[in-house]
Write a protein that binds this DNA or RNA. Structure first.
Lengths: 215, 215
DNA sequence: GTCTATAGCTGGATAGAC
DNA sequence: GTCTATCCAGCTATAGAC
């Protein structure tokens, strides 16, 4: 365990909450384990946050805000879908180490049956989703995809896929699994279609109209 | 709670294990809650399965095999990516009710820090992944996508996305969220690209070669 | 195979000293 | 604000009656 010793108790509790979820999973989190990890006593959680749920909610949002900010510059520099895929790949690699997405996945699992945790976790995830949406919006402005796909929902779907991939890969002993690779190959294909030019674009638009009419 | 009363104790425990995960999440599962749900006593779990982990592992595989079999005929009848999307949509709706994917998501979260659970859960998920892969293989045989994408990994990625979507949507109070819609819109676009015909296909192949060379 | 009983532990939450 | 002490509910795992 990491046993933080700097900052105020309230801050150390936040950090310890995240660390404990990462190290032991949502099922291994208790007021006692978190407090031990923070070098504080168990009662301090109830004093500062009222409940363990509330601490986790609070900590998730604070930690995620930090991680999102750390990636913002890199995302802002991305100029194409293929570059975005590269950023996604390295973000995935970092997350396997630092584990913010993994922590959010654990909390999402807990959030299915816990209102307080649900609110904090969805708020935290929304920080990622907003960032993804802003990037997609910028990259796809004026393109075929912007016309044909609901962007806010796509950002949500992409984020969901990331969460799922972290969970699946985290459950395997094997080293690197190619799960993300396949999705990045798909994204690469999307980039290629975007690059096709106006003639092919028009052909695709016609096809979409036709297949939409068939419904 | 559902309190099953038919079948052998061992079977009732398996069913109760799934029901308890669905109703209370992985963090709410204990030998006591499961046994109560099965109408049996807590010690029977250790007699029949040795541990709670082992029961969950066993139950996940049995339940998933049943759900996958229930969907096999429908998947086998699918003849296009757009039809597959329709099946995925109704599968998603059913899963929100019956909850096998949701249960697997909970178990995946637990599996991150539990070897026994990890083995059972990945084996169960593999049943879905294999089914998805077989369907994709059939639909994409001879197509552009078969050449350009790693199909086993794609099947894994698609399954991961499903898990992530169940988790995200399950954490919101709101009724229907459009998360899956965006991914199905993407899939529809893929169908359109597949339908484009040999000329556009050749153009895409050229583009892919070019962008691959650039790496 | 199924039950009760139990030992020994971990858990949430509060009270109250400092 | 931080600590100790405490209550009691819930937990795992085993022993042993039937």
């Amino acid at each position: 365990m990491s046993a933080a010793t700097e900052g105020t108790t309230k801050d150390r509790l936040r950090e310890a909450a995240i660390a404990t979820v990462r190290e032991r999973g949502i099922a291994g989190v208790s007021a006692r384990t978190v407090a031990a990890n923070a070098g504080a006593n168990q009662a301090s959680i109830y004093y500062h946050f009222g409940s363990l749920d509330a601490l986790l909610s609070d900590a998730a949002q604070a930690a995620t805000a930090g991680r999102v900010a750390a990636h913002r510059d890199r995302l802002a520099a991305v100029a194409s879908v293929s570059e975005l895929v590269e950023v996604a790949r390295s973000l995935h690699a970092e997350e396997r180490e630092l584990g913010n997405v993994t922590v959010l996945a654990q909390m999402l699992a807990g959030a299915q049956h816990d209102r307080v945790l649900a609110e904090g976790t969805t708020a935290a995830l929304q920080l990622w989703i907003d960032e993804v949406e802003a990037t997609l919006q910028r990259l796809l402005a004026g393109s075929l995809l912007e016309e044909l796909v609901d962007l806010p929902a796509l950002a949500r779907g992409v984020s969901a896929a990331f969460v799922g991939v972290e969970l699946l890969d985290g459950a395997e002993d094997d080293g690197e699994l190619p799960t993300l690779d396949a999705l990045t190959q798909l994204a690469g294909l999307v980039q290629v279609v975007l690059d096709l030019g106006p003639v092919a674009g028009a052909a695709i638009r016609r096809h979409v109209k036709r297949s939409t009419r068939d419904r």
